[in-house]
Design a protein around this nucleic acid. Sequence first.
DNA 1: AGGAAGATCTACT
DNA 2: GTAGATCTTCCTA
Length: 188
Amino acid sequence: MYKVLSQKFYVDNPEDVAKKLLGKALVRRFDSRKVVGKIVETEAYYSEGDPAFRKEFLPKISNFKQGTTFIYMVHANWLLNIIAYNKIFGGVLIRALEPIEGIDMMRKFRGIDDLSNLTNGPGKLTVALNITNDLNGVKVYDRSSKLIICSLKEEKIEIVSAYRVGVKEDLDRKLRFYIKGNSFVSKH
DNA sequence: AGGAAGATCTACT
DNA sequence: GTAGATCTTCCTA
């Protein structure tokens, strides 16, 4: 049902990968079950010329290949990024999901029932999929990983571009992308 | 030891 | 929808 995207998918500008990831499935595998969400909101970050990029991370991650995860803590939340770049090193922050499968497990991990509040934010979705530090550096293009990204049935979507959320100093470019009309987007 | 960080929750207008 | 408190790890001194 889910087809894993190859590593090539992530060899591209963060900006383009961020757009291409919309509508794809983020799959969290457990021993016998899985939790799946459709990616509905992303943001692109560049390691150069981007004030919002946290340079102090660079020494640790600059050798990360395209298609690996980079997970870090901000304000008591684990945030999930996928390394993606062509020339200039960068990544894509996954900001929101639409729950597809394993919704009961998401509810359990989040400790709440409200479906619309399970995965509509970068820190919420990591809780809902039980993503923490120990999934840092995982290959999302390897089907044996605990976290993978797959294609879903093609759907026609409209992409909205916007300024990034929460960054202290943003660029004069719209690097946040989300699926128009989707109710799981974190901020409209 | 202290501060910063790309967020979330709650309690309001 | 905004404002303020608080969340936890990591980095710098």
